[in-house]
Amino acid sequence: METEFTPILSLLGGGLIGASAVLLMATHGRIAGISGIISRILPPRSAGQSLSQGLVFVIGLLLSAPIWVLVYGQSPVQTVSDNLPLLGAAGILVGFGSVLGNGCTSGHGVCGISRLSGRSIVATVTFMSSAFIAVLLLRHVIGA
């Protein structure tokens, strides 16, 4: 599988992610980690947690693809495996890792590193190293 190098779009996307994380922290004092946001909108929720803020954030994520279609007239190009057992195992591992790591990649990688959190730096190095090894093995050793 070949990927397209898009430095301008990547820079703009990263800037938007960073701006949204800063805006959420500045206005609500919350970290923009998806696992934390989802846990705040699904039961059981702790008393005093804002349901509306989490719902608005998730709705914004879900609207990104339809907005893309409106702007560009076509769906964004996505490549997803049709191997359902592999997708299921990957989902379980990501979920387990988010619970074990006390947060997800977006929370640790975007927000935690920017706050110079030692735990987030270690978590990000761990999941990025795991991703590098997985790509090396799957693409270059196994050839999947």
Rank of each mutant, 00 (worst) to 15 (best):
M1Q: 09
M1G: 12
F5M: 14
T6N: 13
P7K: 08
P7V: 10
L9V: 08
G14P: 04
G14Y: 07
L16I: 11
L16G: 05
S20M: 15
A21T: 10
A21F: 07
V22C: 10
L24N: 06
L24W: 07
A26M: 11
A26P: 01
A26Q: 12
T27W: 06
H28T: 07
G29D: 05
G29A: 07
G33T: 06
G33K: 05
G33R: 05
I34R: 09
S35W: 06
S35A: 08
I37H: 08
I37V: 14
S39I: 03
R40Q: 13
R40K: 10
L42S: 12
P44T: 03
R45P: 10
S46Q: 12
A47T: 09
A47H: 09
G48M: 05
L51F: 15
L51N: 03
L51P: 00
S52W: 13
Q53S: 12
Q53V: 15
L55T: 11
V56S: 09
F57T: 10
F57H: 13
V58C: 11
I59A: 13
L61R: 03
L61F: 09
L62V: 09
A65S: 12
P66N: 11
I67E: 07
I67T: 12
I67M: 12
I67H: 09
W68M: 02
W68F: 15
W68R: 04
L70E: 09
L70Y: 10
Q74A: 13
Q74E: 14
V77H: 11
V77I: 11
V77Y: 10
Q78Y: 03
V80A: 01
L84N: 03
L86S: 06
L87G: 01
G88D: 05
G88C: 13
A90S: 13
A90R: 04
I92L: 14
I92G: 03
I92V: 15
V94P: 01
V94N: 00
G95C: 04
G95Y: 08
F96M: 10
G97R: 00
L100D: 00
G101N: 05
T105F: 03
S106W: 03
S106M: 05
H108M: 00
H108I: 00
V110S: 01
C111M: 11
I113H: 02
I113G: 01
S114A: 15
R115H: 15
L116F: 15
L116P: 03
S117T: 02
S117E: 09
G118H: 02
R119Q: 04
S120P: 02
S120F: 00
I121G: 00
V122C: 01
V122A: 01
A123L: 00
T124H: 00
T124G: 00
T126Q: 01
M128D: 03
M128I: 15
M128V: 15
S129M: 04
S130Q: 04
S130A: 15
A131K: 08
F132D: 04
I133P: 02
V135T: 13
L136S: 11
L136F: 15
L137Q: 07
H140E: 06
G143N: 06
G143Q: 03
